[in-house]
């Protein structure tokens, strides 16, 4: 048997494939949280991205790559538009971040705005006209072991790797990145140092929305190239858990996303190999892990040590004590 068909290689490749939407969504959430804004609306924003991107591939025509690029951007921008609501409410009007985020998911998510759009545009049950497919990079797809894992993935996977590198460099090597960290840690300090706290928080909340939308588009354009109401099935929540799980660090977020990707794909891969276990067991694994992680990190002990941005979730008003 070809080594590339071995279960380890197949699992590794599909962990990356299924983990990628989480990389986008979690990296967006990470940027928002680093600036001090908690956005629990990720699920809603992802679903918005999924439905608008799918609408776009059905209605745009042109070469695959162009349509997919435009559709992904449209998905991202639609989710960004949703995140504007959150940003205005919590940064501008200082509403409670948890309430606003939850409202966002309810408003934009499954059975909300995204399903309305999908139903009105009759997107359900249609096969996608364009979809992301694996690229054989430099013809290395058949290289033993590494080929399927690293050189035979779709374009968004490669984009997500670039994203992680850019996020890392941004946070630690640029002046603006330093400012973001200061704004999330102590907006009082940032303010007296002449940094515009509100502007940074707006910008990063919107960036978070954009990336959540791209993550959502991945579901409708790469994973199951079609549209189903609520198709992200909780990936937004997993992304939020992932940020905490990764201690707000981009590189660990990537690793964590692939771990969750592994759990998501375990069911299919084993089934394809005639390992018969109740599918519910596998289907529930990522969520079970999310619950475990969230319980573990929400203890007082962990909160103190994990390096959460100190001002996460707290509004800042200059003349208020």
């Amino acid at each position: 048997m070809n080594v590339n068909d071995s279960i380890v290689v197949v699992l590794a490749a599909s962990a990356i494939f299924y983990g990628t939407p989480l990389v986008f969504a979690a990296m967006g959430e990470l940027l928002a949280e680093r600036s001090g804004v908690l956005n629990l609306g990720v699920e809603g924003m992802m679903l918005t991205g999924a439905v608008t991107a799918f609408w776009a591939v059905q209605h745009l025509s042109g070469p695959d790559w162009l349509v997919l690029l435009l559709a992904t951007m449209i998905g991202g921008l639609a989710a960004l538009a949703v995140s504007v609501i959150h940003a205005v409410l919590v940064v501008g009007l200082r509403a409670n971040q948890i309430v606003s985020g939850l409202a966002l998911t309810i408003f934009a998510g499954a059975t909300g705005l995204s399903s309305y759009v999908g139903n009105v545009a009759r997107l359900g049950g249609q096969p996608a006209h364009h979809e992301y497919t694996a690229i054989n990079v430099l013809g290395l797809a058949d290289v033993p072991v590494l080929g399927p894992i690293l050189f035979h993935q779709n374009a968004l996977v490669y984009a997500s790797w670039a994203l992680v590198l850019v996020a890392l460099a941004y946070l630690h090597r640029t002046r603006t990145g330093l400012h973001v960290r200061a704004v999330g840690e102590s907006p009082q300090t940032a303010d007296v140092m002449g940094i515009d706290v509100a502007r940074y928080r707006y910008a990063h909340t919107l960036a978070g929305g954009l990336l959540a939308g791209v993550g959502g588009a991945y579901f409708s354009l790469a994973i199951t190239p079609n549209w189903i109401d609520g198709m992200t099935s909780g990936a937004g929540w997993i992304a939020i858990a992932l940020v905490i799980f990764a201690f707000w660090r981009p590189e660990l977020t990537l690793a964590g996303a692939y771990l969750f990707g592994l759990f998501s794909s375990l069911g299919f891969v084993l089934q394809a190999r005639q390992v018969h276990l109740p599918p519910e067991v596998f289907a529930s694994l990522p969520y079970l892990m999310t619950v475990v992680v969230l319980v573990a990190v929400s203890t007082g002990w962990a909160r103190q040590r994990l390096g959460a941005p100190a001002a996460l979730g707290t509004p800042y008003v200059r003349e208020e004590r």
Binding site: T174, L178, T189, A190, A310
Partner: peptide, 28 residues
């Protein structure tokens, strides 16, 4: 120098000192 210091606790001393300095280059 405020009574309650305005310092970002998780950043280094050097980072706190250059924070927000406009003359700093874009790439640190």
């Amino acid at each position: 120098v405020h009574q309650h210091f305005r310092l970002a606790a998780s950043l280094t001393v050097a980072d706190n000192i250059v924070l927000g300095h406009q003359a700093a280059p874009w790439l640190r």
